[in-house]
C-alpha cells in the first residue's frame, strides 16, 4: 500500500552548457509517494520549479520501462542508482527512506560531454556502430530465413549480448571511461552468429579503433558489469579482445605478403 517518503534533500548538478561551469544546487522534496518512480519525483520537482518561475532541470528520459536506454543519471555515485539490473526509470522511491540525502549527477566521462544539467551527449556510441556494428545485408537479397540453422545455445548467447540498451552506464561507471562493455556486447552479438562471420575481423578492428579514438582503455575493473541495467557479462570483453588480437595477426600476415 502506498506510503509517503518525507523530507528528502536532493543535490542536483546544474550546468547551462558544455563550456559553462556547473554547480550543485540543493532542493528539498517534503513528501513524495513511495509508488512514484525516481523520474516521476524529478517531474514533480520540475513542476514546482516551473510554478516558481524557475527553469526545469534537464534530464534525458523516454520509454520509462527500461528498454530505450535514454535515461541516465549517477545517483549517489552509482550509475542508474542503487538497484542492480535496472535503468534509472525503473528505480522507485520505495528504495529510499525519510530524510535521505540524494546526490544526482550526469554520467561523467570525457567522451560524454554535458549538454545541459543532467543531459550528456552519447553520440560517440553511434560512431562505434557506424564504423562496423552491423552485418552488410542490403534490403532485398536475403535468402530464406530457415536456410541457416543456428544452434539454440549460439542464438541464445548472441541474444544475451544483443540486449544492450546503449545507455552508457558502463562508461560512466568505469574509472577509465572505457566503452569496452558496449563495444564488446555488439561484437559478441554479431561475431557469434553464422551471418556475422564474413565481416568478423574487419568489424572488430574497425569498432575497436573507433572506440579507442574517443574512450579510455579497459583495465578489467569490472565496474561496467555491475552498473549494466541488462547485466551483460564482462565475458564479452574477453571475446572482443580475442577477436581483435586475431584480426591484428591476420592483417599482419596480409601486410607481410
Amino acid at each position: 500500500m502506498s506510503n509517503s517518503i518525507k523530507n528528502l534533500t536532493l543535490k542536483i548538478w546544474r550546468q547551462l552548457g558544455p563550456t559553462v561551469k556547473g554547480t550543485f544546487e540543493t532542493y528539498n522534496v517534503e513528501e513524495i509517494s513511495d509508488e512514484a518512480s525516481f523520474l516521476e519525483m524529478l517531474d514533480y520537482l520540475n513542476e514546482r520549479l516551473i510554478s516558481e518561475g524557475k527553469t526545469a532541470i534537464v534530464f534525458d528520459h523516454d520509454c520509462r520501462e527500461g528498454i530505450c536506454g535514454t535515461c541516465s543519471l549517477m545517483i549517489n555515485g552509482q550509475a542508474h542508482g542503487p538497484q542492480r539490473g535496472g535503468a534509472t526509470c525503473q528505480l522507485h522511491m520505495r528504495t529510499f527512506s525519510d530524510g535521505d540525502n540524494i546526490v544526482i549527477e550526469p554520467f561523467r566521462a570525457e567522451a560524454f560531454p554535458i549538454i545541459r544539467d543532467l543531459m550528456v551527449d552519447r553520440s560517440k556510441f553511434d560512431r562505434i556502430i557506424e564504423s562496423g556494428g552491423f552485418i552488410t545485408a542490403p534490403t532485398g537479397g536475403a535468402p530464406d530465413a530457415n536456410l541457416i540453422a543456428i544452434p539454440k545455445p549460439v542464438s541464445d548467447s548472441a541474444m544475451d549480448s544483443a540486449q544492450c540498451i546503449g545507455c552508457g552506464a558502463c562508461v560512466a561507471a568505469c574509472p577509465n571511461g572505457a566503452a569496452n562493455l558496449f563495444t564488446g556486447a555488439k561484437v559478441a552479438h554479431l561475431n557469434r552468429l553464422p551471418q556475422g562471420q564474413p565481416e568478423r575481423f574487419k568489424r572488430v578492428e574497425a569498432m575497436v579503433e573507433t572506440m579507442d579514438e574517443y574512450f579510455g582503455s579497459c583495465t578489467n575493473h569490472g565496474e561496467c558489469e555491475g552498473a549494466c541495467p541488462k547485466e551483460i557479462s564482462v565475458d564479452v570483453i574477453a571475446l572482443l579482445n580475442k577477436d581483435y588480437r586475431k584480426a591484428k595477426f591476420a592483417s599482419r600476415k596480409d601486410l607481410a605478403r
Binding site: A137, G140, A145, I150, A158, H189, L193, G196
Partner: peptide
C-alpha cells in the same frame, strides 16, 4: 515473409528450436 528473411540476414537473434530452425 521477406521481412523475416531480411531481419535474420541482419543478425536479429530470433528464438530458435533445438534443431536450429526458427
Amino acid at each position: 515473409v521477406n521481412i523475416i528473411d531480411q531481419m535474420v540476414a541482419q543478425g536479429v537473434p530470433f528464438a530458435r528450436e533445438y534443431g536450429g530452425l526458427l
